[in-house]
Design a protein around this nucleic acid. Structure first.
Ligand code: DGT
Ligand code: MG
Ligand code: MG
Ligand code: ZN
Length: 612
DNA sequence: GCCGTTTTCGGCCCGACTGTTTTCAGTCG
């Protein structure tokens, strides 16, 4: 749609039928970046099966990664803009052009015709890569998991060259656990709990130091496995002890420096053991990402150095005996001429380039957070009383907290009306007297109804200390309608923030269809903040969409959306998302003092009111 | 397939574990 017409659309949306207008002006949604990325990943797999050049395969994988985390729609960029992106050249740009038109590209279709779709499943089996999958298909006609299993049971696989009895056995076990395990990635929050308990186990086994690494340390929203690092003698005792833990349902491999197991829950856990004097180098390697590691290693080579998990070495030091840096991550980055790069930014998306010239953002930290603005009490669907919530907020060291509840509406069971709002606010102010030093406000999580109206009338809503609005009903609207609905809501000058804008619940519910560019543009116009909701299955906005919001000039409101006192700690989850989005203190409203935050609310309402 | 200003050709990160096989390919991190 034409974004420049927005300031014109929103006021009209207040009084008129916004959706009718949008149907006329908005064009069909472009192919999503995630879809383009999926196609390139598929092409990479098929190229690998075709025994293509590994670097060509990597180029496709890299392109997929890049497009996935783009803050603009790749489908809306022309070929020149696309090739400006490092890692995307003429070939990939042309494919994107085709995808935009046809939903696929010719080269991919040719590749697809060469292999049965069932081979994709085979490749997920632990220990089967492209080479073995291809042999199994060409020599035994394996094109499904069931066929693979049947042949393994009959002992047909061991007969193939390069395969043997042991490989056959492993394949059989791999098929079993693939069928048993749930395919979903684990959420960050429970994954961290699990990792911390395993780290305790490793310390008990004699590890001098132990930390989680991998995607968990980078704070990705979900993790594919747990990657644990230990400092200790790599003599095999730690890895052996690890493989014999009661948590280990299956052992994948055990050597002196690394081991891999499958936990009872089906999730894999990798352990790496290195001597304490190279702990930093190993932590750097094991934290990744793979793409970040490659960029660092390429940079090292340009400087006549080489980097691995044992340290940074001069190329002349053939024995790799005397590292230039190895003890700490800080020393590694410094020796490469880089600012220290926070794990959350290590995705190989230009962070090294920024670090070279000292342009990394100074990321917001949990200790910068002065308060929480989206919570629930037992008055609506929360578990704890106002006093309980205040107590927890105080123990977190907050300067302020807004205790909220849902507005009464169809989708919400125990929502409150305006009268109840007023009386409960009086109760809150009374309760807050027992918590000197903690400032409290009463907020409402206001339902945005199907037509984009907020639940409270204009006369009522202006009395509410803080209005955080969101969608909990009619979630399956089309993109145009949903976008129009949210824009209409934002045209209400008392809507201070849009909560969990996508409505997604990881592994449960897909995000609403929403035109983010339009929503962010309108939010900028209305001075509406966007929430980063810290509920572990929401994380909404996400790292990518929160980055888009910042680029659109918006302020972000972090929240725990706590439904109990203990859940106030989900603020930390929101901070991690914010850090991955590259947000600084200045981007985050929670870093304001109570006084400044209240002024922000007053002033944004006054400005918005003048516009309409 | 992408990239580069010493290169438009010839590189492209680097290492551990397993199994099958007499020297290493395949898979994975
Ligand atoms: N240098 C290098 N490091 C790698 C490579 N593959 C993995 N690593 C490092 C960086 C990764 O973050 C780390 C852990 O590997 P994982 O496969 O578990 O990936 P990661 O944890 O990043 O993502 P995940 O959520 O597990 O899918 O090992 C590689 O090919 N080269
Ligand atoms: Mg991992
Ligand atoms: Mg791993
Ligand atoms: Zn909600």
């Amino acid at each position: 749609m034409n974004l420049s017409s927005l300031s014109f659309i929103i006021p009209s949306a207040l009084s008129l039928q916004p959706s009718a207008y949008f149907f006329k002006t908005m064009s069909a949604a472009p192919v999503a970046n995630s879809e383009i990325a999926r196609l390139f990943n598929e092409a990479a797999i098929l190229l690998e099966l075709s025994n293509e050049n590994v670097f060509r395969v990597r180029a496709y994988q890299k392109a997929a990664m890049i497009i996935e985390s783009l803050t603009v729609n790749a489908a809306e960029l022309d070929s020149e803009k696309l090739t400006d992106i490092p890692g995307i050249g003429k070939g990939v740009a042309a494919h994107i052009g085709e995808i935009t038109k046809n939903g696929t590209f010719r080269d991919l279709e040719v590749l697809r015709s060469k292999f049965p779709p069932g081979l994709m499943e085979i490749l997920k089996v632990q220990g089967i890569g492209a080479k073995r999958a291809r042999h199994l298909y060409e020599e035994l006609g394996v094109d499904s998991l069931d066929k693979l299993k049947a042949l393994a049971l009959k002992g047909k696989i061991r007969a193939l060259e390069g395969f043997g009895a042991k490989v056959e056995e492993n394949i059989l076990a791999g098929v079993q656990s693939l069928k048993a395990a749930s395919p979903a990635r684990m959420l960050y929050w429970p994954a961290r709990r699990l990792a911390l308990s395993l780290l305790e186990r490793l310390r008990a086994l004699g590890a001098e130091k132990a930390a989680y690494a991998g995607s968990l340390r980078r704070g990705r929203e979900t993790v594919g496995d747990l990657d644990l690092l230990c400092a200790g003698r790599p003599d095999g005792t730690l890895t052996a002890g690890f493989s014999k833990l009661p948590e280990a349902a299956k052992i994948l491999s055990v050597g002196p420096t690394k081991a891999a197991i499958i936990l009872a829950s089906g999730i894999q856990c990798d352990l790496r053991v290195v001597p304490p004097e190279v702990y930093g180098a190993a932590l750097n390697y094991f934290t990744g990402s793979k793409e970040h590691n490659i960029v660092l290693r390429e940079l090292a080579l340009k400087k006549g150095l080489t980097l691995n998990e044992y340290g940074l070495f001069r190329l002349e030091d053939k024995e790799r005996k005397r590292p230039v840096a190895a003890r700490t991550e800080e020393e590694i980055y410094s020796a490469l001429g880089l600012e220290y790069i926070a794990p959350e930014l290590r995705e190989g998306r230009g962070e090294v380039e920024l670090a070279l010239t000292g342009r990394l953002p100074k990321l917001v930290e949990l200790k910068d957070i002065k308060g929480d603005a989206h919570t629930h009490t037992d008055i609506s669907d929360g578990k704890d009383s106002m006093s309980g919530m205040l107590e927890a907020a105080r123990s977190l060291g907050y300067e302020w907290v807004f205790l909220g509840d849902h507005s009464k509406s169809l989708g919400v069971v125990h929502g409150i009306n305006f009268k109840e709002y007023l009386s409960s606010r009086a109760d809150l102010l009374e309760a807050a007297k027992n918590f000197p030093g903690l400032k409290a406000g009463r907020s409402i999580e206001m339902e945005i109804d199907k037509t984009g109206r907020l639940e409270f009338s204009d006369g009522e809503i202006k009395e509410v200390d803080l209005v955080v609005a969101s969608v909990h009903s009619s979630m399956r609207l089309g993109e145009e309608e949903m976008t129009a609905r949210v824009l209409s809501a934002m045209a209400n000058p008392y809507m201070d923030a849009l909560a969990h804008p996508s409505g997604r619940q990881l592994n449960k519910r897909e995000p609403y269809k929403l035109n983010y560019a339009a929503v962010f543009k309108a939010a900028r116009h209305c001075g509406t903040a966007l929430e980063i909701n810290g509920q572990p299955e929401r994380q909404d906005l996400t790292d990518v969409t929160a980055r888009m919001a910042k680029e659109a000039g918006l302020k972000l409101l972090l929240s725990s959306d706590a439904h109990s006192a203990a859940q106030l700690s989900y603020m930390e989850q929101a901070v991690i998302v914010a850090r991955r989005a590259g947000l600084t203190k200045d981007d985050v409203l929670n870093c304001l003092s109570f006084e400044d935050f209240c002024r922000w609310i007053r002033e944004r309402r006054a400005r918005a009111f003048k516009k309409f």
